[in-house]
Amino acid sequence: MDEIDDILASVSAPTVPQRTRDLQALTRAWVNERTSPDLLPYPTPLVDRVMDRVKKQIETIEEITGTLDPKSNFTLVILQTELERFKFLVRSFLRARIAKIDKYPIHYRDLTLTDLSLLSPLEQQYLQSHQALLSAHYNGSFLATFPQALQKLDDTAGGVSMVDKPDEETAVFCRVLRDAGTVEIMGETATTDVDLKRGDLWLLRWSAVKDATVRGDVELV
């Protein structure tokens, strides 16, 4: 499939190969996930494509290793170095997501009921079984001895929610990739509007740029 895509891309316009675009996309996914306070949607097609290629590349490397040609030794070093770089990107990306899922499990469990693209099937499975284990453990060790009214882990009674949420107002550094209209800044004395112009670098609140980041108009740095 990839090869066909690459050929099509090279015929239609002087564009960059799909693999290079995917590297940009994966790198952006990683940086966005590492720097944002909130979980971003899971880019399923992108990760699937990258993982497919990683698998194929491992097979290629195994084949070359089998031939034992001294000339191909150096090629092998390059291929393996690049493979490790890719594996690091994917791994760090997934681990950053798991860190957030672990931090706000109930919040994201509730969100996935309405937004299916937020977590990958594996992440959902992890979240569910991890939560099941945790609540069974809490119940077994101390919650069961509490009065019935105090046993809930997601109580919202009295106007105070027990469910922890990521802080949407955290400040983030971002780069504007496409003109993205205006955002409001709540200053100490007044609210001002600023224009997000292509190429600008800003320190802004996450809530102000979250939608633009998901659209791809803004990337975090």
Binding site: Q24, A25, T27, R178, R198
Partner: peptide, 24 residues
């Protein structure tokens, strides 16, 4: 220059229309 026209219904990080930025 921006990479083509976006339609507004692309997925998050769809690489069909992806804008390149440093370090790329």
């Amino acid at each position: 220059p921006p990479a083509g026209v976006r339609h507004g219904y692309e997925d998050y990080l769809s690489s069909d229309v992806i804008d390149f930025a440093p370090p790329f």
